[in-house]
Nucleic acid binder design. Structure first.
Lengths: 238, 238
DNA sequence: GGCTGGCATTGACAAGAATCAAGTAGGATT
DNA sequence: AATCCTACTTGATTCTTGTCAATGCCAGCC
């Protein structure tokens, strides 16, 4: 994989990452010196579970999936990372092997930090260490949120939640474009592609219509309602 | 809640925590100065989701559950923490409110650090910051593991995995005692108590027998096998 | 000893999701 | 335009899980 120096627009994305945004300019300049970037095609594997964790990654553009292949043959999609997000911090920090694999799901521009150089900066800069804590804390919240969803919502409700996050704050009547394959969305939500199809169908009464990769939501509030309560009324404790 | 100074055996538990074990003695002595401990009965709520996150917690003995109550009425159990484990690091670090609630599920001895004092030590000690990174990374792995389980295994398999972790490395014929209510185990595994009962029943053919809170496993290897493959054969890719 | 209340199991049924097997629709290729 | 491929949908069936109701079991209590 051919890697190069970052352009100024790459640096703008880096600057805004949770890991670095609290850094003063001089410290960020040192970061900029050790980063390298690469353009990768869809389907490129960045690392396999078990590989030595010798790098930290960030997404400049595109989408990366972090997943684990389990013995029984199917794949658990643990996270999807887009522009401005970093991943594999914990692995690089703990050392040893990556606990999961990662690969691009669309054409991507990726930035990378080699472990030794990054570790040097980390040891020298308490601010960077805070940034790292912040990143890990955010990841932890996201994954915890996934556990909550998987434990307490059915497939339709999880899909509703997924669509609402794609709305990014817009409310009312919204049209969103699915950023990747439905098969991947299904895996991300912990279900099979067939079930995703049926879940989309099941959301039609709640005002969701799908055409190819364009989803129209009649009213985000109605969908949010469905996401919370599902079809069944909630039991109110006395 | 009445809180006191730690005894020397409390300090031994603290010393072994992932957060502190890499600290040199003088730094640990500063930690010991700001910690307080309390004995709490079963069912004591440590904090509610939304409360100001002004403390970091550790378990000296007993078990604590971290959970979220969702609007629809049921509860997602996000983690169970026992002797030597810390929790709420991320919340305390990020500031703002706790994203979840926590309470004792048996009588517990708990240690606590007030945020301002802990923050002072954290700012002054890069080693402590590393310890914090380590703790968060461990939590992240655990939660990620849960997502993988929920996405790829059915209830019986998740129960098998849970029982195997209780074995703590022992193999062959093993007898374990369930550390808390079956209702709690069910919630932890993302199912209803009725389903847990049936899952136990479903594991009988795999050599699992239950009497009250004592579980006998005929052969851990056989159970591990079931946990991986379930009843259905795996598709081998060509 | 007989109540009572909390946990745990069991049974019957309905909803949810996986599986297996067709079938459809687009987009790209030729 | 005919084809092929892939992604997606739909249908039928089975397995898994939630729901609701009934029962058993044990512990603490009067």
């Amino acid at each position: 994989m051919e890697s190069r120096k970052p352009t100024s627009s790459d640096l703008a994305v880096l600057r805004a990452m949770a890991l670095f945004r609290a850094l003063p300019d001089p410290a960020f300049r040192r970061i900029a010196e050790i980063v390298s970037v690469a353009d990768l095609p869809k389907g490129h594997v960045l690392f396999h579970q078990g590989d030595g964790a010798d790098r930290l990654y960030g997404v400049i553009s595109g989408w990366v999936e972090v997943y684990r292949d389990v013995e029984s043959g199917d794949r658990a999609v643990l996270g999807l990372f887009g522009r401005g997000e970093t991943f594999a911090e914990a692995a690089m920090f703990l050392g040893g092997g990556f606990p999961a694999s990662a690969g691009t799901v669309v054409a991507c521009r990726i930035c990378m930090f080699d472990r030794p150089a990054f570790e040097r900066l980390l040891a020298a800069d308490p601010q960077l260490c805070r940034g790292m804590l912040g990143s890990l804390a955010i990841h932890l919240h996201r994954v915890t949120h996934d556990v909550e969803q998987l434990q307490t919502r059915n497939g339709r409700q999880r899909l509703a939640g997924f669509l609402l996050r794609l709305c990014e704050g817009r409310t009312g009547r919204v049209e969103v474009t699915l950023p990747f394959d439905k098969a991947l969305i299904a895996a991300r939500l912990g279900m099979k592609p067939e079930s995703l199809s049926r879940s989309f169908a099941g959301l039609r009464p709640s005002g969701v219509r799908v055409a190819h990769s364009v989803v129209t939501i009649d009213d985000t509030r109605r969908l949010a309602d469905y996401c919370r309560n599902g079809t069944l009324r909630s039991r109110r404790p006395a």
